[in-house]
Design a protein around this nucleic acid. Structure first.
Length: 255
DNA sequence: AAATTAATCAACCGCCCAGTT
DNA sequence: GAACTGGGCGGTTGATTAATT
């Protein structure tokens, strides 16, 4: 009887795991993550697989810094929706909620810090603003959800620069700002600076459709052939005698 | 060149919701 | 209709890299 720790891997994904996941997602689609995790032999949770796919492996993802237009759009949409990152991400094709969240956190914290320096040091963050001026989350904002599409679009898997290292948990000192602090600091200033950019932005531009099974990332990895060590798991590829047939795997997934 | 600090980003956790049984 | 399950989301952490001292 294995323990949970032995069964489920955590931490950075290895290149082998990535390729394995890509293969099985292309086989079965990006649903049923728990089943994919099981049938693939990855000792990962379904959640972990989904996250890896959505945030890193999906062929439609862009890489690199946000463009000024994207930054503007993030500001605009955040002012409308607050921390609805996934929602905001749907309006930025190729960007993930995680990416936008990270961007916001990094840049807004920087802004907040600069602002604090600019303001008299006698004003502390604790009395800078009251709890009533909290995050501008407005779920009731009227938005045409019907037009929202996934960021998924066609494209290539540009690279797989992967770490694949074990992690050691090391406790560290305090980071500084909490998210609340950041929101409080930026709330007033940002609202006044936002300029609508919908003049140059159209819903159509985000009308992407999820690509079907075949995609560049499949071609990217389909010519690789390797196995993980020992009994743990192995890469299944079409043509390999141990590659599970579509019917077999489908039967597994659908029960 | 080494040490320290800041910035970036991948990944996990816990909660919630929708679909299924 | 209640219980269960899987998937999605937002918040947070921690490792790595870059910049600065």
């Amino acid at each position: 009887m294995k323990t949970v720790d032995e069964e489920v891997r955590k931490g950075p994904w290895t290149e082998q795991e990535d390729i394995l996941l890509i293969n099985f997602v292309h086989l079965f689609g990006d649903r049923r993550w728990d089943s994919i995790a099981k049938v693939s032999g990855l000792n990962r949770t379904g959640k972990s697989c989904r996250l890896r796919w959505v945030n890193y492996l999906h062929p439609g993802l862009k890489r690199g810094k946000l463009t000024p237009q994207e930054e503007k759009l993030v500001l605009e949409l955040h002012s409308k929706w607050g921390n609805r990152w996934s929602r905001i991400a749907r309006k930025l094709p190729g960007r993930t909620d995680n990416e936008i969240k990270n961007y916001w956190r990094t840049h807004m914290r920087k802004k907040a810090q600069e602002k604090k320096r600019a303001i008299s040091p006698s004003i502390s963050s604790s009395n800078y603003c009251s709890s009533s001026s909290n995050v501008t989350v407005m779920n009731s904002f009227p938005v045409q959800d019907s037009g929202e599409a996934s960021f998924y679009d066609t494209g290539g898997l540009d690279k797989l620069d992967l770490g694949g290292k074990n992690i050691e948990v090391v406790k560290e000192g305090e980071k500084g700002y909490s998210m609340d602090d950041i929101w409080k600091d930026i709330d007033l200033s940002e609202k006044s600076n936002i300029t609508p950019i919908y003049g140059s932005y159209s819903e159509e531009s985000c009308n992407f459709s999820y690509p079907s099974v075949a995609s560049p990332s499949w071609e990217y990895c389909s010519d690789t052939l390797w196995r993980l060590d020992g009994e743990e798991s192995k890469l299944f590829l079409p043509g390999d005698e141990s590659f599970p047939s579509y019917e077999d795997a489908r039967a597994f997934l659908t029960g």
